[in-house]
Nucleic acid binder design. Structure first.
Lengths: 119, 119
DNA sequence: CTGATGATCAACCATATGGTTTATAATATC
DNA sequence: GATATTATAAACCATATGGTTGATCATCAG
């Protein structure tokens, strides 16, 4: 059980340790479903290269694929990030002494990302 | 600036993508300062191997080193995790949506069934 | 000074990673 | 059927990674 979780954290953190893949996840978060070539288009990289990145994300459980004809539609599967975030959250108490700095960071991130999410 | 942040996320996530290094960080969080060999002792690995892991953590800014005589004392530098956690936190809404929905459901049910109910 | 200890460095090895090119499979379109 | 489009697969390449062994350095204890 614990081993499985450790392996999951390995693959998730590994998948996140590449800026192209992180940008792909961000695109999926913003735009919803996208084909592989649509995901690939922003990058100066062959389609085959981008396809491999998508495969890494899929293997990490961060992306789900739905094949329709010759098009592979990808969508974000964010749940897998929960474990990673929980892992990091444990360490929050070690940096929250500088609470102001953190709060500023999160607030900036929040305003940049979540528009009109308030109820 | 953004590039620098991306590079930081690269190295931090990369450093976290190894269970030995994550365990070392946990040890430092629990026990405070530890020497390199003390950090290495739980693992069936040469001291040189463990030393390389410590170096990776140090390069990622997750560990600080204080040399005293021949002993290198390491301590956790958790602040660097804040960016990584902030990055992940953006995606929280994609996995908590189900919880939000559930919560709304329960709240409606609660209001319909029992008045003045405490949360 | 001698020897043991804590740690790094350098060289090496096997495998993984990020990328390419070329080929192939599957599906649209003409 | 012929051809173009979407995507993967396979082979390859350079570099990175996780680990080892052996040498070296610095320091502490006799």
């Amino acid at each position: 059980m614990v081993d499985h979780q450790e392996a999951t954290l390995d693959t998730v953190f590994q998948a996140l340790a590449d800026s192209t893949r992180r940008a792909m996840l961000r695109t999926l978060a913003e735009d919803g479903e996208k084909s592989v070539s649509a995901l690939a288009s922003p990058y100066s990289m062959t389609l085959a290269g981008a396809s491999k990145h998508v495969k890494v994300l899929e293997a990490a459980g961060l992306v789900r694929r739905r094949v329709e004809g010759r098009i592979h539609y990808c969508r974000l599967e964010a749940a897998r990030m929960a474990e990673a975030e929980a892992w990091l959250r444990y360490y929050e108490r070690f940096w929250t002494r500088r609470l102001d700095t953190l709060e500023a960071l999160l607030k900036a991130e929040d305003e940049q990302a979540g528009e009109g999410k308030r109820l």
